[in-house]
Simulated assay, not measured.
Amino acid sequence: MYAVVVSFEIRPEAMPEFMPLMLANARQSLELEEGCQQFDVATDPLRAGEVFLYELYTDRAAFDVHLSAAHFKTFDSAVAKMIVTKDVRTFTEVTQ
């Protein structure tokens, strides 16, 4: 497994527009990308404007497919000006 966690800080006025686009991106990733196993979108009401993603892919190559997917590129372009900060971290499963 290849895990990706993303934290966004979204401009407060952009949240109503950002969230439907984010949820559509998550849904399309799961529906269209064979290697996307999980794509969770989470928020905390005490931290308005913060959006947390937890994504699982079969491997790094599957994540690369996600990054090159048309739906992701469309989403990324549409939300670019809505984002204050974005932190992406990746993790590879530890095996023995």
Rank of each mutant, 00 (worst) to 15 (best):
M1I: 03
Y2W: 04
V4K: 13
V6K: 11
S7Q: 15
F8Q: 00
F8R: 02
I10C: 07
R11V: 07
P12F: 02
P12Q: 04
E13I: 01
E13F: 00
E13M: 04
A14I: 01
P16M: 11
P16E: 06
P16F: 03
E17S: 14
E17Q: 15
F18M: 00
F18L: 03
M19G: 01
L21I: 08
L21N: 08
N25C: 15
N25M: 10
A26C: 03
S29N: 01
L30R: 06
L30Y: 09
E31Y: 02
L32E: 13
E34Y: 07
G35R: 14
G35T: 14
C36W: 00
Q37I: 14
Q38M: 11
F39V: 09
D40T: 07
D40N: 11
T43R: 15
L46N: 06
L46I: 05
R47D: 04
A48Q: 15
A48C: 12
G49T: 03
E50N: 14
V51M: 09
V51K: 11
E55V: 02
E55M: 05
L56T: 12
Y57W: 11
T58R: 12
T58Y: 06
A61Y: 05
A61G: 12
A62K: 05
D64I: 01
D64E: 15
V65H: 06
L67H: 07
A69K: 13
A70C: 07
H71Y: 12
F72R: 03
T74E: 02
T74C: 00
F75Y: 07
D76M: 04
S77G: 15
V79D: 04
K81H: 14
K81L: 10
K81P: 08
M82V: 07
I83Y: 00
V84K: 02
K86L: 11
V88R: 05
R89V: 08
R89S: 01
F91G: 00
